[in-house]
Simulated assay, not measured.
Amino acid sequence: MTRRKSSKIAKSVGAVGGKLAEVPGISPNPMTNLLLTDLVLRGGGQIMRHAVERTLLGTKYSKGKAKSIVKGRSMVQTMVGTALARIATRSVPGAIIVGGGMLAKTLYDRKQGKTAAKTEGERKVREQAAAGEKESDPIVT
């Protein structure tokens, strides 16, 4: 006797006695619980990512400047970084394309020469830190 497909699926998702098991949550609406879980995970991930970035920047810059650099990131920079990470993590060809682009940029910077690439990078970091410091200052009217 063969089992029906639905019973196999029900067992794989945690069915109890042929019915799906109740998953406790804040709301009785499962979509609300899913949304809340998504927000918590994304918020926690963002906090952790900022902490790691500040720590890595803290090896070269002061703690305050590292915080300003992370705060000064524009919306476009954030969206580009997110898009590239998604492309790289969703498929092998995407990872190859993004990795190849990063390699090409690194080789281009090296070809420019240490001083030119370093000077340009430091100028952009200063601008981003200034934007972050401006953002954290209270609004003066």
Rank of each mutant, 00 (worst) to 15 (best):
N33S: 01
G101V: 00
T37N: 15
S91Q: 01
T141W: 11
G44A: 03
Q77S: 10
S62C: 00
G132L: 07
V98D: 01
R86Y: 04
P138A: 10
R3C: 01
G58C: 04
G101D: 00
M75C: 15
K111T: 09
L35E: 12
T55R: 14
A88D: 06
G43T: 02
T59K: 10
G100P: 06
T78K: 12
K105I: 15
T106C: 01
A129H: 09
K5Y: 10
L57D: 05
K63E: 06
R90I: 04
R126I: 00
K65W: 01
V16F: 06
P24Q: 06
K114S: 12
I87G: 04
S7A: 13
T119M: 05
L103C: 03
M79V: 14
V92H: 07
V13A: 05
A129S: 14
G72D: 14
K124V: 08
R4K: 14
P24C: 01
K111Y: 09
S12K: 03
I96N: 02
G121V: 02
M31Q: 13
G64P: 11
R49E: 06
V40D: 13
L56F: 08
G25L: 03
T55C: 09
L20A: 08
G113F: 07
L36I: 10
A15C: 07
I97M: 13
A116V: 15
V13S: 05
P28R: 12
T37D: 12
I9T: 07
T115H: 08
Q128T: 06
G72N: 09
L103K: 11
R54M: 15
M102I: 02
M79G: 13
G72K: 10
L34S: 08
K5V: 09
I69R: 13
S62I: 01
Q46G: 03
L41M: 15
G58T: 00
K114T: 12
A131K: 15
A104P: 03
A116G: 10
I69P: 14
I87Q: 09
V98N: 00
G72S: 09
L35P: 04
G14L: 06
R49F: 08
T2L: 14
S6C: 03
K118P: 00
H50S: 06
K65E: 09
T82H: 04
Q77L: 02
D137T: 14
K124G: 04
H50W: 02
K63N: 09
Q46V: 03
Q77I: 01
T115P: 00
I69E: 11
V76I: 07
A85V: 05
E122N: 11
K5H: 10
K67N: 08
M79S: 15
Y108Q: 10
E133F: 09
K105A: 11
Q77W: 01
L35Q: 12
P30G: 00
D137G: 12
S74E: 00
I96T: 04
